[in-house]
Simulated scan of single mutants.
Amino acid sequence: MAPIPKPPAEPHDNPDAYVGLEQARAERLAREKGWSTVRSLPPGAIITMEYRSGRLNFEVKDGRVARSWKG
Rank of each mutant, 00 (worst) to 15 (best):
M1D: 08
M1G: 12
P3F: 12
I4H: 12
P5T: 05
P5K: 13
K6C: 10
P7T: 04
P7L: 05
P8D: 07
A9V: 12
A9T: 11
P11A: 10
P11T: 10
H12E: 15
N14A: 13
P15D: 14
P15W: 14
P15R: 09
D16F: 09
D16R: 13
A17H: 11
A17I: 10
Y18G: 03
Y18V: 02
L21R: 14
L21S: 14
L21N: 04
L21D: 10
E22Y: 07
E22C: 05
E22L: 04
Q23T: 09
A24W: 12
A24C: 11
E27P: 02
E27L: 06
E27K: 12
E27V: 15
E27Y: 04
E27T: 11
R28W: 12
R28D: 13
A30K: 02
A30M: 02
A30Q: 03
R31A: 07
R31E: 06
R31F: 02
E32M: 01
E32W: 00
K33D: 15
K33Y: 07
K33A: 10
G34C: 08
G34H: 04
G34S: 05
W35K: 01
W35G: 03
S36M: 08
S36N: 07
T37N: 11
T37Y: 11
R39H: 06
R39P: 01
R39C: 04
R39K: 09
S40K: 01
L41T: 05
L41D: 04
P42Q: 08
P42E: 11
P42H: 03
P43C: 05
P43E: 00
P43H: 00
P43K: 03
G44H: 09
G44L: 14
G44S: 09
A45D: 15
A45P: 08
I46F: 10
I46G: 08
I47Q: 11
I47L: 06
T48S: 12
T48V: 07
E50D: 13
E50S: 06
E50V: 07
E50P: 00
Y51Q: 04
Y51W: 03
Y51E: 10
R52G: 04
S53E: 09
S53Q: 07
S53C: 02
G54Q: 11
R55G: 13
R55D: 13
R55H: 09
L56W: 12
L56H: 15
F58M: 03
F58S: 05
E59D: 03
E59I: 10
E59M: 01
E59L: 01
E59T: 07
E59R: 01
K61D: 02
K61Y: 00
D62P: 05
G63N: 13
G63T: 08
G63K: 07
G63A: 15
G63I: 06
R64A: 09
R64D: 00
R64K: 14
V65K: 01
V65C: 03
R67T: 00
R67L: 02
R67K: 09
S68M: 02
S68D: 01
W69C: 00
W69F: 08
K70E: 10
G71Y: 00
G71P: 02
G71I: 06
